[in-house]
Design a binder for these strands. Structure first.
Lengths: 186, 186, 186, 186
DNA sequence: CATGAATGAGCCTTCATTCAT
DNA sequence: GATGAATGAAGGCTCATTCAT
């Protein structure tokens, strides 16, 4: 039989993604996981705890994805690889992005997860900055911020705002833009 | 005496921004507006209704802000003006952005507001595209999408992700980028 | 323009019949009658008042129906006429019976209408007894009670209990029964 | 300690009988049962659910009462026994009849219980028909309908319409009527 | 590790009624 | 006669959480 703790996390992640944290009750999670109400509180002290556990897991996943492309690429190749895997992931697992956005944007969950969010974001920032620095850009930091903003904005718009979003064209445009040497000259 | 309906909207907007829709109870709104519980349902059939009303108001505000800069600017000036007013607004009224992001990102509110969100976004897209087209860019549409994503991503990161966000530098970088002729050559 | 007071009574009667007294709100009545909330309370001090007014009206109607057949019939003909018009009315206006039954059976409405119910029932009892007495039955009173019970029971079963109710056959049986001289011999 | 679920049913049955379904709040039931508000919804998903549970229980009780007289009676004795136990029960437990009538007559509860009402009525009809068939009456079905209507009408009048109801005399009359051979000759 | 009865606060909503205009 | 804003109590129901077993 499957590990119950893991099962609960799985079900809760799915529910939090689809309906949001506030709109998912512990009871519903129990029901869907075919687990007693007592058990969920045995494994996670509170609902907030469960959320934090889930956030940590998604952070691990993000790091894992980013780590795989640490090969013997040139900096620019690294960048392209980053963009590439971002778009692939975005198309493959919308719910994953949905969950992360909503955890960050919802006032209550942001407060709850504040420390973990900071940890994760500074990791990502450093990671991206590492790449930009190698391209010898004078202002690697600012470029990293903008790069991240661009990708996050694309995810946001793709998921929440535009009914039809030309993901492919945008990806192409982005790839071209970061290959173009002009933008690094300032 | 102040108009109660308007007062309720004001208070609710503030609460929805600060704590989120799900985390704001109608009772709390009534209490803060010093109004009876019945009255809120006299003016708005449901809580969802109240949310829609608020979303419509923020859309109006967004349109209003964008309309003021339709003067005898050159296209590039228009763009700079757009960026400028975005950053000014972002710093001046974080809650306004917070509210809009969370309404769009929260699964439940997004569902509730879906039609209104589509309306608003296509208005914004057309509006931005109108500017890019005048700059004679071959792919005004894609550039518009990217431009919007960039700004949205900046708002998202500024509000939710990074504790310290170098807004000024980013703005400078952005202004420079969209003045630079290079990016329009493709 | 139609008289508003009458209009309200009409709409309320319909709603009370279809959904019951407790399940009909004054607001819904106002809405359906296209009348302001204030007006309904201008014409009827309370909801209970409105109910009593309606009950009185239905009593008037019942009396009216029963009075029309006070012609130069023989007693037995009178009885048959009574049965006849009961069945005709039952088929023609189920809601009318529905309303009367529910007003009498619902604890709250019965309490509210108690005096009016007693008035009406004793009128009906006297009316029926008047007929049975002429048939020279020794126990006209008991027969009247049973006669009324039979009709009420038929209405009750027809409306509420049996999905398919053989109203025609039952009517035939009843007509025959009260023509048969045997039942009067005791 | 007593079983809480059963206790809730008991209290609710009493309240539904005395004040009607719509006029009994879940809170009142909880209060009277000395049980938390949450518990009632733990055992019964909704108020409607609780009602259905109660209706089922009263059906069981009705069936149970009717089953006890399946002894070696002649058909006519069976009938008299039926009448007898009906009147005994009617005097002993007015509330029981009150509840059943109001559940059937109230538009909302009838809708809610429709399937269960049909089930119960057809059981009773078959049960009564079984007796009349043995008396070799050509039209057992119609007689059964009339018999049931008569008893239901008596209950209705006794409980709801007439302040003073000569139950004893009516019972006597009824017993005599169904002993009399005349009524079976057609 | 696992169950599910039990709690009590809180939520959205409805409703009869009042009152100033 | 007529309107509709305003009230406040009450209602059904949900939910995170606890605890005895």
């Amino acid at each position: 039989m499957k590990d119950n703790r893991e099962l609960i996390i799985e079900v809760a992640t799915k529910f939090f993604s689809e309906r949001g944290f506030e709109n998912t009750s512990m009871s519903k999670v129990c029901e869907a996981a075919k687990v007693s109400k007592g058990l969920i509180f045995h494994h996670f002290k509170t609902k907030d705890d469960l959320l934090r556990e889930i956030f940590k897991k998604t952070t691990d996943l993000i790091i894992e994805i980013n780590n795989t492309n640490q090969q013997d690429y040139t900096p620019k190749e690294e960048l392209l690889e980053l963009i590439n895997s971002f778009f692939i992931q975005l198309e493959k697992d919308k719910l994953f992005f949905q969950l992360n956005l909503s955890m960050i944007v919802q006032p209550k969950t942001r407060m709850l997860l504040n420390d973990l969010i900071q940890e994760r974001s500074s990791f990502i920032l450093q990671s991206v900055k590492g790449v930009f620095e190698k391209i010898d850009s004078k202002n690697a930091l600012i470029m990293s911020y903008l790069f991240i903003a661009e990708l996050d904005g694309i995810a946001l718009n793709y998921l929440g705002i535009f009914d039809t979003y030309p993901l492919e064209e945008i990806k192409a445009q982005l790839l071209q833009k970061y290959t173009n040497n002009e933008i690094y000259k300032n």
